[in-house]
Design a protein around this nucleic acid. Structure first.
Length: 183
DNA sequence: TGCACGATGAAC
DNA sequence: TTCATCGTGCAC
């Protein structure tokens, strides 16, 4: 597998989001390598995007989004689930891609259809916040063999508070994949 | 120092 | 449709 380089993440967020589909998320913890195929993502375009956490500005939680690309932004949501993002674009742009669902490839137990379930199954929590995704134990890679797929665009989930930004088609997923979260 | 509210998921 | 559960951001 070919690990994605910094230059992959340092591009327009919507391009990164679309190209993350079909890639392999790899996390090694306690000597166990877990791999999931990314099948659903959402793009958060920067501090001007009212649905993005970075729209609140530079705060303790959002500082990772304002940092350099290719790092993980992991946060606790609703007091019980974690969500994982990939920081994109140049430092200071505060954009990211939320990983919403994966297809189990290796050592992934439990359901993975949704950002909270994905993190639970991949053993991803706040300890990985701000971690470099070019690490040896936490990265995204291009699989040796890639399956062709059709991509679907849809509005993002759970961001109705973001007015017109909630209606933009910034959710991308692999058509027909069984592990895409519904709604 | 207090409090309203989630980029969710599961139960009813 | 309701609820579990708690860190964050902002009001006071």
């Amino acid at each position: 597998m070919q690990k994605l380089l910094r230059s992959f993440y340092d591009r327009e967020t919507m391009v990164v989001a679309r190209e993350l589909l079909g890639k392999y998320l790899v996390h090694v913890s306690r000597g166990v390598e877990r791999i999931g195929r990314i099948v659903e993502v959402e793009a958060y375009l920067g501090s001007h995007d009212l649905a993005a956490h970075s729209a609140k500005g530079l705060t303790g939680r959002t500082k990772v989004m304002f940092g350099p690309p290719g790092h993980a932004y992991v946060y606790l949501i609703y007091g019980m689930y974690h969500c994982m993002n990939v920081v994109t674009e140049r430092e200071g742009h505060a954009s990211a891609v939320l990983l919403r669902a994966i297809e189990p490839i290796k050592n992934v137990a439990g359901r993975t259809q949704g950002p909270g379930l994905l993190c639970r199954a991949m053993r991803i929590d706040k300890r990985l916040n701000a971690k470099d995704l070019l690490s040896d134990d936490f990265y995204i890679a291009t699989p040796r063999r890639t399956e062709p797929f059709v991509m679907i665009k849809a509005p993002r989930v759970g961001v109705d508070y973001a007015r017109h930004w909630a209606r933009r088609y910034l959710r991308f997923y692999i058509k027909g994949n069984l592990f895409v979260s519904r709604r």
